[in-house]
Amino acid sequence: MNPYFQEVLDAHQLIQEWLGNKEAKEEVCETLLARFSPAYSMVTMGGGLLDYPKVNAFFRTQRGARPGLKIGISDMRIMAASDHGATVVYRETQQLPGESPTLRFSTVVFEAKQNGRVIWRHLQETAIPQS
C-alpha cells in the first residue's frame, strides 16, 4: 500500500484506540504524538487553529473520552507528491455507539524524512453536511 495512505490508516487506528478506550496503554498516545511534526498545524472543522503543543495537550487528556469510538477512512487520493512529501485527501467518518456519525473531508500535508519516516505537517478538516 502507498506509505501515505498507510500512515493515514495507522494514525487513525491509534486515535480510535486512544480516544475510544479508557484502558489504552500510554504507549498508544506516545506513538500517536510521535507521528506529528513539532511544526504541526491543524485547522479544525470549527475553524480553530491548533499547533503541536495544543494537539499534544488535547490528546494527553483524552484517553477514553469517547468510549466505543469508531473511525472509518475512505476515498484516499494523492493530490500532490514529491521526494519531500505528499498531500493526501480522504473522507473520515467518526461514530460513537448510538449516535449519528460525523463526516469530514480531510487534507493532510505529509513530510517525508530521509530515513523514510512520514510525519504529519498540516491537517485541514471540513465538515460534510448530513441531509
Rank of each mutant, 00 (worst) to 15 (best):
Y52V: 14
V55C: 04
N21Q: 07
G47E: 04
E23G: 01
V89R: 13
F59A: 05
L32Y: 13
I78T: 14
L50K: 09
C29L: 10
S41V: 15
V89W: 00
Y52R: 09
R77A: 15
D83G: 11
S41Q: 11
K70G: 01
K70I: 12
G47C: 09
R35V: 00
P38Q: 09
R77L: 10
A81R: 13
V43Q: 09
M45L: 13
R63S: 01
T31L: 15
R60Y: 01
V89N: 05
R91P: 00
F58W: 06
E23V: 04
A57F: 04
Q62N: 10
Q62K: 11
F36I: 10
A65F: 10
H84W: 08
S82M: 13
Y90T: 00
Y52E: 03
A57C: 01
E23H: 05
F36C: 12
P38N: 06
V43M: 10
R60D: 02
T87L: 10
S74Y: 15
D75F: 12
A34P: 06
S37A: 13
E23M: 05
V28R: 00
P53D: 03
L33C: 02
M79H: 02
A24M: 03
G68S: 06
N21T: 09
K54W: 01
I73C: 07
F59C: 08
C29Y: 03
A57P: 00
A24T: 01
A34R: 04
L49F: 12
R60K: 15
E23P: 00
E23R: 03
R91I: 05
G72T: 14
Y90P: 00
K25D: 14
T31F: 04
A81Y: 02
H84Q: 15
N56I: 00
L50D: 09
Y52I: 11
G20P: 06
F59W: 11
P38Y: 13
E30L: 02
V88Y: 05
N21L: 03
G72Q: 14
R60H: 14
Y52N: 06
Y90V: 02
G85Y: 03
A34S: 15
R63E: 00
F59T: 05
S82R: 07
G48E: 03
S74G: 14
A80I: 11
A65N: 09
I78E: 08
K70E: 09
S74V: 08
D51H: 05
T61N: 08
G68R: 14
V88D: 13
R66Q: 13
K25H: 14
L50R: 03
G46C: 09
A34K: 14
V88Q: 12
A57L: 01
R63G: 03
V55M: 13
P53F: 12
L50H: 06
F36V: 10
L69K: 10
L32E: 00
